[in-house]
Simulated scan of single mutants.
Amino acid sequence: MDFLASLAPDDVSPLAAVLVVAASFFTAALTAAFGLGGGLALLAVMGALFPPAAVVPVHGAAQLGANLSRFGLQRRDVVWPIVLWFALGGVLGAALGGRIYVALPEEALRAAVGLFILIAVWGPKPKAFEPGPRTFFLTGAVGSFLTMFFGATGPIAATMLSATRLDRLKTVATHAACMVAQHGLKTLAFGVIGFAFAEWALLIAAILTAGFLGSWAGVRFLRAMPEARFRTGFRLMLTFFGFYLLAAAGLSVLRTG
Protein backbone atom coordinates (compact mmCIF):
# COMPACT_ATOMS: atom_id res chain seq x y z
CA MET A 1 0.00 0.00 0.00
CA ASP A 2 2.88 2.39 0.73
CA PHE A 3 4.24 1.74 -2.77
CA LEU A 4 0.85 2.52 -4.31
CA ALA A 5 0.56 5.66 -2.22
CA SER A 6 3.99 6.79 -3.46
CA LEU A 7 2.80 6.59 -7.07
CA ALA A 8 -0.07 9.00 -6.64
CA PRO A 9 -0.16 12.71 -5.74
CA ASP A 10 -1.49 13.60 -2.30
CA ASP A 11 -5.05 14.20 -3.51
CA VAL A 12 -5.37 10.78 -5.23
CA SER A 13 -6.00 7.63 -3.17
CA PRO A 14 -3.98 4.42 -3.75
CA LEU A 15 -7.21 2.62 -4.72
CA ALA A 16 -7.98 5.26 -7.35
CA ALA A 17 -4.45 4.90 -8.71
CA VAL A 18 -4.83 1.11 -9.02
CA LEU A 19 -8.21 1.39 -10.75
CA VAL A 20 -6.91 3.88 -13.31
CA VAL A 21 -3.81 1.77 -14.06
CA ALA A 22 -6.01 -1.31 -14.59
CA ALA A 23 -8.38 0.71 -16.78
CA SER A 24 -5.40 1.84 -18.86
CA PHE A 25 -4.67 -1.77 -19.86
CA PHE A 26 -8.21 -2.60 -20.95
CA THR A 27 -8.91 0.70 -22.69
CA ALA A 28 -5.61 0.53 -24.61
CA ALA A 29 -6.52 -2.97 -25.79
CA LEU A 30 -9.91 -1.68 -26.96
CA THR A 31 -8.33 1.17 -28.91
CA ALA A 32 -5.67 -1.06 -30.47
CA ALA A 33 -8.33 -3.48 -31.69
CA PHE A 34 -10.88 -1.00 -33.08
CA GLY A 35 -8.92 2.24 -33.49
CA LEU A 36 -10.90 4.23 -30.93
CA GLY A 37 -13.03 3.96 -27.81
CA GLY A 38 -10.39 3.46 -25.18
CA GLY A 39 -9.50 7.13 -24.83
CA LEU A 40 -13.06 8.16 -24.03
CA ALA A 41 -13.52 5.21 -21.65
CA LEU A 42 -10.29 6.06 -19.80
CA LEU A 43 -11.35 9.71 -19.62
CA ALA A 44 -14.59 8.65 -17.92
CA VAL A 45 -12.68 6.59 -15.33
CA MET A 46 -10.24 9.42 -14.64
CA GLY A 47 -13.09 11.90 -14.42
CA ALA A 48 -14.65 9.84 -11.65
CA LEU A 49 -11.43 9.31 -9.66
CA PHE A 50 -9.09 12.26 -10.25
CA PRO A 51 -9.30 15.96 -9.30
CA PRO A 52 -11.13 17.80 -12.13
CA ALA A 53 -8.24 20.14 -12.94
CA ALA A 54 -5.89 17.18 -13.51
CA VAL A 55 -8.14 14.98 -15.66
CA VAL A 56 -7.52 16.42 -19.15
CA PRO A 57 -3.74 17.03 -18.78
CA VAL A 58 -3.02 13.60 -17.23
CA HIS A 59 -5.34 11.90 -19.71
CA GLY A 60 -3.45 13.61 -22.55
CA ALA A 61 -0.08 12.37 -21.28
CA ALA A 62 -1.49 8.86 -20.81
CA GLN A 63 -2.99 8.82 -24.30
CA LEU A 64 0.27 10.08 -25.78
CA GLY A 65 2.03 7.04 -24.33
CA ALA A 66 -0.72 4.60 -25.29
CA ASN A 67 -0.77 5.83 -28.87
CA LEU A 68 3.01 5.74 -29.05
CA SER A 69 2.72 2.07 -28.13
CA ARG A 70 0.20 1.46 -30.90
CA PHE A 71 2.27 3.48 -33.34
CA GLY A 72 5.41 1.52 -32.50
CA LEU A 73 3.63 -1.79 -33.00
CA GLN A 74 1.93 -0.76 -36.26
CA ARG A 75 4.24 1.87 -37.78
CA ARG A 76 4.69 -0.08 -41.05
CA ASP A 77 1.00 0.47 -41.86
CA VAL A 78 0.89 4.25 -41.27
CA VAL A 79 -0.22 6.44 -44.21
CA TRP A 80 2.19 9.35 -43.63
CA PRO A 81 0.72 12.09 -45.87
CA ILE A 82 -2.50 11.98 -43.81
CA VAL A 83 -0.54 12.26 -40.57
CA LEU A 84 1.52 15.19 -41.86
CA TRP A 85 -1.50 17.32 -42.80
CA PHE A 86 -3.31 16.32 -39.60
CA ALA A 87 -0.31 17.34 -37.47
CA LEU A 88 0.06 20.69 -39.26
CA GLY A 89 -3.58 21.46 -38.51
CA GLY A 90 -3.04 20.24 -34.95
CA VAL A 91 -0.38 22.89 -34.32
CA LEU A 92 -2.92 25.60 -35.13
CA GLY A 93 -5.70 23.99 -33.09
CA ALA A 94 -3.59 23.40 -29.98
CA ALA A 95 -2.23 26.98 -30.07
CA LEU A 96 -5.73 28.45 -30.26
CA GLY A 97 -7.13 26.05 -27.66
CA GLY A 98 -4.35 26.82 -25.21
CA ARG A 99 -5.11 30.53 -25.43
CA ILE A 100 -8.77 30.17 -24.47
CA TYR A 101 -8.54 27.04 -22.27
CA VAL A 102 -11.86 26.38 -20.46
CA ALA A 103 -13.34 29.64 -21.78
CA LEU A 104 -16.01 27.84 -23.83
CA PRO A 105 -18.96 25.78 -22.47
CA GLU A 106 -17.97 22.13 -22.45
CA GLU A 107 -21.57 21.00 -23.08
CA ALA A 108 -21.77 22.84 -26.40
CA LEU A 109 -18.45 21.36 -27.54
CA ARG A 110 -19.50 17.82 -26.64
CA ALA A 111 -22.83 18.17 -28.44
CA ALA A 112 -21.21 19.65 -31.54
CA VAL A 113 -18.69 16.80 -31.80
CA GLY A 114 -21.43 14.20 -31.24
CA LEU A 115 -23.56 15.67 -34.02
CA PHE A 116 -20.56 15.90 -36.34
CA ILE A 117 -19.75 12.21 -35.84
CA LEU A 118 -23.31 10.99 -36.43
CA ILE A 119 -23.80 13.15 -39.53
CA ALA A 120 -20.41 12.16 -40.94
CA VAL A 121 -21.04 8.43 -40.39
CA TRP A 122 -24.71 8.19 -41.43
CA GLY A 123 -25.44 11.34 -43.46
CA PRO A 124 -24.62 12.14 -47.09
CA LYS A 125 -20.98 12.98 -47.70
CA PRO A 126 -20.58 16.55 -49.00
CA LYS A 127 -17.79 17.24 -51.46
CA ALA A 128 -15.91 19.29 -48.85
CA PHE A 129 -15.57 16.16 -46.71
CA GLU A 130 -13.81 14.17 -49.41
CA PRO A 131 -10.42 12.86 -48.19
CA GLY A 132 -7.56 15.20 -49.07
CA PRO A 133 -4.98 17.59 -47.59
CA ARG A 134 -7.58 20.26 -46.72
CA THR A 135 -9.82 17.76 -44.94
CA PHE A 136 -6.91 16.23 -43.03
CA PHE A 137 -5.60 19.70 -42.03
CA LEU A 138 -9.01 20.92 -40.82
CA THR A 139 -9.64 17.70 -38.91
CA GLY A 140 -6.29 18.07 -37.13
CA ALA A 141 -7.02 21.71 -36.28
CA VAL A 142 -10.54 21.04 -34.96
CA GLY A 143 -9.55 17.91 -33.04
CA SER A 144 -6.53 19.52 -31.37
CA PHE A 145 -8.56 22.60 -30.46
CA LEU A 146 -11.37 20.58 -28.88
CA THR A 147 -9.07 18.14 -27.08
CA MET A 148 -7.79 21.01 -24.93
CA PHE A 149 -11.24 21.24 -23.35
CA PHE A 150 -12.55 17.70 -22.93
CA GLY A 151 -9.75 15.33 -23.76
CA ALA A 152 -10.96 12.49 -25.96
CA THR A 153 -11.48 13.63 -29.55
CA GLY A 154 -10.20 10.48 -31.23
CA PRO A 155 -13.61 9.86 -32.87
CA ILE A 156 -13.15 13.04 -34.94
CA ALA A 157 -9.98 11.67 -36.57
CA ALA A 158 -11.62 8.25 -36.84
CA THR A 159 -14.57 9.76 -38.70
CA MET A 160 -12.15 11.38 -41.16
CA LEU A 161 -10.33 8.08 -41.67
CA SER A 162 -13.59 6.21 -42.23
CA ALA A 163 -14.05 8.29 -45.40
CA THR A 164 -10.67 7.21 -46.81
CA ARG A 165 -11.66 3.55 -47.12
CA LEU A 166 -8.27 2.35 -45.88
CA ASP A 167 -8.03 -1.27 -44.76
CA ARG A 168 -8.25 -2.06 -41.04
CA LEU A 169 -4.48 -2.13 -40.42
CA LYS A 170 -3.84 1.19 -42.16
CA THR A 171 -6.87 2.76 -40.48
CA VAL A 172 -5.80 1.86 -36.95
CA ALA A 173 -2.10 2.58 -37.54
CA THR A 174 -2.74 5.99 -39.13
CA HIS A 175 -5.20 6.88 -36.37
CA ALA A 176 -2.53 6.01 -33.80
CA ALA A 177 0.02 8.28 -35.50
CA CYS A 178 -2.51 11.13 -35.70
CA MET A 179 -3.27 10.74 -31.99
CA VAL A 180 0.44 10.79 -31.13
CA ALA A 181 0.65 14.17 -32.85
CA GLN A 182 -2.52 15.47 -31.22
CA HIS A 183 -1.80 14.36 -27.65
CA GLY A 184 1.85 15.38 -27.95
CA LEU A 185 0.81 18.91 -28.90
CA LYS A 186 -1.76 18.97 -26.10
CA THR A 187 0.73 17.80 -23.47
CA LEU A 188 3.19 20.45 -24.64
CA ALA A 189 0.48 23.12 -24.44
CA PHE A 190 -0.49 22.14 -20.89
CA GLY A 191 3.16 22.22 -19.89
CA VAL A 192 3.42 25.77 -21.24
CA ILE A 193 0.21 26.73 -19.40
CA GLY A 194 1.82 25.51 -16.16
CA PHE A 195 0.35 22.10 -15.23
CA ALA A 196 2.62 20.33 -12.70
CA PHE A 197 3.34 17.09 -14.60
CA ALA A 198 6.26 16.27 -12.26
CA GLU A 199 3.86 15.53 -9.38
CA TRP A 200 2.08 12.94 -11.53
CA ALA A 201 5.15 11.44 -13.21
CA LEU A 202 5.21 8.08 -11.36
CA LEU A 203 1.49 7.47 -11.78
CA ILE A 204 1.65 8.44 -15.46
CA ALA A 205 4.56 5.99 -15.91
CA ALA A 206 2.46 3.17 -14.40
CA ILE A 207 -0.49 4.10 -16.61
CA LEU A 208 1.76 4.06 -19.68
CA THR A 209 3.22 0.66 -18.83
CA ALA A 210 -0.25 -0.83 -18.48
CA GLY A 211 -1.29 0.89 -21.71
CA PHE A 212 1.61 -0.63 -23.65
CA LEU A 213 0.65 -4.13 -22.50
CA GLY A 214 -2.96 -3.46 -23.44
CA SER A 215 -1.94 -2.18 -26.89
CA TRP A 216 0.13 -5.32 -27.50
CA ALA A 217 -2.87 -7.52 -26.67
CA GLY A 218 -5.21 -5.41 -28.81
CA VAL A 219 -2.94 -5.44 -31.89
CA ARG A 220 -2.79 -9.23 -31.79
CA PHE A 221 -6.59 -9.32 -31.76
CA LEU A 222 -6.81 -6.80 -34.64
CA ARG A 223 -4.53 -8.83 -36.95
CA ALA A 224 -6.75 -11.86 -36.47
CA MET A 225 -9.99 -9.93 -37.12
CA PRO A 226 -11.79 -10.27 -40.50
CA GLU A 227 -11.97 -7.01 -42.50
CA ALA A 228 -15.79 -6.96 -42.71
CA ARG A 229 -16.14 -7.43 -38.95
CA PHE A 230 -13.71 -4.58 -38.32
CA ARG A 231 -15.64 -2.19 -40.59
CA THR A 232 -18.92 -3.03 -38.87
CA GLY A 233 -17.42 -2.67 -35.42
CA PHE A 234 -15.69 0.58 -36.36
CA ARG A 235 -18.93 2.13 -37.64
CA LEU A 236 -20.91 0.99 -34.62
CA MET A 237 -18.22 2.34 -32.28
CA LEU A 238 -18.37 5.75 -33.95
CA THR A 239 -22.17 5.76 -33.68
CA PHE A 240 -22.05 4.84 -30.00
CA PHE A 241 -19.66 7.68 -29.20
CA GLY A 242 -21.70 10.17 -31.20
CA PHE A 243 -24.77 9.40 -29.08
CA TYR A 244 -22.63 9.23 -25.93
CA LEU A 245 -21.34 12.77 -26.44
CA LEU A 246 -24.84 14.11 -27.10
CA ALA A 247 -26.17 12.38 -23.98
CA ALA A 248 -23.26 13.60 -21.86
CA ALA A 249 -23.89 17.17 -22.99
CA GLY A 250 -27.59 16.89 -22.20
CA LEU A 251 -27.04 15.40 -18.74
CA SER A 252 -24.47 18.07 -17.91
CA VAL A 253 -26.95 20.81 -18.85
CA LEU A 254 -29.65 19.20 -16.70
CA ARG A 255 -27.34 18.95 -13.68
CA THR A 256 -26.19 22.57 -13.90
CA GLY A 257 -29.54 23.98 -14.97
Rank of each mutant, 00 (worst) to 15 (best):
P105C: 04
P14Y: 00
F243T: 05
L203Y: 08
R231C: 05
L203F: 12
V121D: 03
I193C: 06
V180T: 11
F241M: 08
T139C: 06
A54C: 04
R110K: 15
A111R: 11
V21T: 14
A62C: 05
F150A: 12
L73E: 04
V91L: 14
L36K: 01
V113D: 04
A22Y: 03
A8E: 09
L188G: 11
H175P: 00
A128Y: 12
F3Y: 12
A5E: 13
T164V: 03
V102G: 07
G97F: 01
Y101R: 12
S6P: 01
F240Q: 06
I193S: 06
C178P: 10
G218T: 09
A22C: 04
T174S: 02
L4N: 09
R235L: 06
V79A: 06
V45Q: 04
A196W: 10
V12E: 04
F221M: 13
I119K: 11
T31W: 07
A247Q: 03
A177E: 10
L246G: 06
T187K: 09
I82Q: 12
K170E: 13
L118Q: 12
A141R: 11
A152F: 05
V121Q: 13
L7V: 07
A152N: 07
P81I: 00
G114K: 10
V172P: 00
A249S: 12
T232L: 14
R110L: 12
F25T: 09
P226W: 08
W122S: 10
G98Q: 14
L96R: 02
